[in-house]
Every structure is written in C-alpha cells, then in structure tokens.
Amino acid sequence: MNDDLPDISRLASLLADPGRSRMLLALLDGRMLPASDLAEAAGLSAQAASNHLARLLDGGVLRVEPRGRYRYYMLMDSSMAHAIEALAAAAHGGDLQRPRLRPKGNAELRLARTCYRHLAGRLGTALCAAMEEEGYLKPHTTAHGFIITETGIGWLREALDIDCNAPGSRSPLMARACLDWSERRDHLAGPLGEALCTAFLTHALVARRSGNRSLEVTDAGGEFLRQHFALTL
C-alpha cells in the first residue's frame, strides 16, 4: 500500500526483542556505552549483543561513535528516547489497576534518575508540578508541554544560572512533557529538561550513582527543593 503513513511496524519489530529492549533502556540516561556494557545489561553473549546492535544501527534506533579502540553506542536522538520512555510507561500502565503489585523499578530509580539527560522519577515529576504551581510554567494550549513564563525565566536564571534568552540557547520558551514510566506523571524533557538536569548536576544538587541511571539527591539538593518549593522527597 502506498500512502504517507509512517511505517511504525518496522520500529516496533526492532523494539520487540527483550534483549534489545534491555540494551535500549540502559541507554536512556543519555550515556554512550560500549557493546560489552550493553551485553552485560541485557544478559547476552558478546556475539548476540553485536548482532542486535547491528540491527538497531541499521534501523536508525542507535548511532555509534568510534573512540580510540572502542565503539560507543547511544540512542539516535531525544525523540527516540521519548518513544522508549513512553513505551515503558505503557508497559506498566496496568499496575494502577493492580495496587497489590510492587512498584516497578527499585526505590533509588523511582526516587530520582536520568531519562536521556533529563530528571525523572519522583524528583523529575515533583519538580515539574512545583514549577507549574509556582507559575514558572503554564500548559501549552495545543502541544503536549509547557510554556516558560517570564517569572520562570527569571527564576531559572537566578536559581540555577539557566539563561533562556542567551544567544544560541537551547532552552526555548516551550518545554516538552514526557510521561514518566514509574510515576505516570509528566517530567520535563527537551532542551529545558536537559538544562535542568545539567544545572542540578553542576550545582551538586544531585549526584550520579554507579551501576545504573539513578541519582542521589544531595543535602544541598534537599535544601534547594525545600527552600524554593517546600518539597521533601
């Protein structure tokens, strides 16, 4: 059939394999990882991982960069990360109707983690909701996201050194919303989400943990959230 509809079945077939999906979830924090790390994350042999990675590269899901002796893999772009996060949310959507089931993910991941360079988990969703409540964000009337208000522009600059009006700034006045798979609420994605995550790391409000994409909210981060939003995670 010849039409202008995108062929989502091709992408869906690439994401359907459990091994490939585990490798993609391991890349959701925006890092570049070698094949050996991805094989370990997916519980696959080196040969099997190599075959899966080749298919994901051919399908445009991943890209690769040679660095010295090694090749490092990453998600193709933020829209691919957004699609994977949305699928993770949909995969666990039935949990809301089954309250006796344990929440998905460990406690550290549910509290705070990176989702392709933005803040996710309870930290990310609470920050998004608090910024809207304070008037720093307002819902966009047509797109699924938020508009950064003038008050919000001022707060971002004063509190986190994020200048939305700087020449060449990648933080436009439109902020995208991303459905969080563990919280089933929105966290901030896109350039603003990336800028917030970078600022939280730069100001040591959060710190990366080794072994997964969870984040530790530092003492300084806890004080920041209490002072600006009366938030306690």
Rank of each mutant, 00 (worst) to 15 (best):
S78H: 08
R98E: 03
V61M: 01
P103Y: 09
H144V: 11
S79I: 11
L119V: 00
T141W: 06
A112S: 10
A107E: 13
H82F: 04
Q97R: 06
G93P: 00
N51E: 10
A166E: 09
T114Y: 12
R55F: 08
S79G: 06
L137E: 05
T141G: 03
A81D: 04
E65W: 04
A41Y: 07
A107I: 13
A48Q: 13
Y116M: 02
E65N: 02
C128F: 02
R69S: 03
N51G: 14
L160K: 09
A42N: 05
G68H: 05
Y136Q: 13
S50V: 12
A107F: 07
M74S: 08
I153V: 14
E108D: 10
P66Y: 09
E85Q: 12
A86F: 07
A90G: 09
A112K: 02
A91N: 10
T151S: 14
H92R: 12
L62E: 03
A81F: 09
R100A: 01
K104D: 03
G135S: 14
H52M: 11
A166S: 09
H82D: 07
G124Y: 01
L109A: 15
E65F: 06
Q47K: 15
R110W: 03
Y116L: 04
R110I: 02
A159M: 13
D58V: 09
L111C: 13
P66D: 06
G124F: 00
I153N: 05
S79N: 13
R55H: 13
R100N: 03
N51Y: 10
M131E: 02
A48G: 12
C115E: 08
G94F: 04
R117H: 12
H92P: 05
R110Q: 06
R98T: 02
L160E: 03
H92S: 03
E134K: 12
A91R: 11
E65C: 03
R113L: 08
R69T: 05
I162C: 07
E133I: 08
G135R: 14
A49L: 09
A126P: 02
A48I: 12
D77F: 07
A54W: 10
D77A: 05
L160D: 01
L53E: 06
E132N: 08
G59N: 00
L160I: 11
Y72V: 01
R157A: 15
H118Y: 11
A81E: 06
G43W: 09
Q97D: 10
G121R: 06
R117G: 06
R157V: 11
A89R: 02
E134R: 15
R102P: 08
C128E: 02
A159T: 13
R71K: 15
F146W: 15
G154H: 10
L44N: 02
C128K: 05
D58H: 10
T125I: 07
R117N: 08
L101K: 07
I84K: 04
R113M: 03
L62V: 00
P167H: 14
A54Y: 09
N106H: 14
Y136H: 14
A83P: 07
A143Q: 14
I84W: 06
L119R: 00
R55I: 05
N165F: 14
A46L: 14
E150N: 15
M80A: 06
L160C: 05
C164N: 12
H144S: 14
I147D: 13
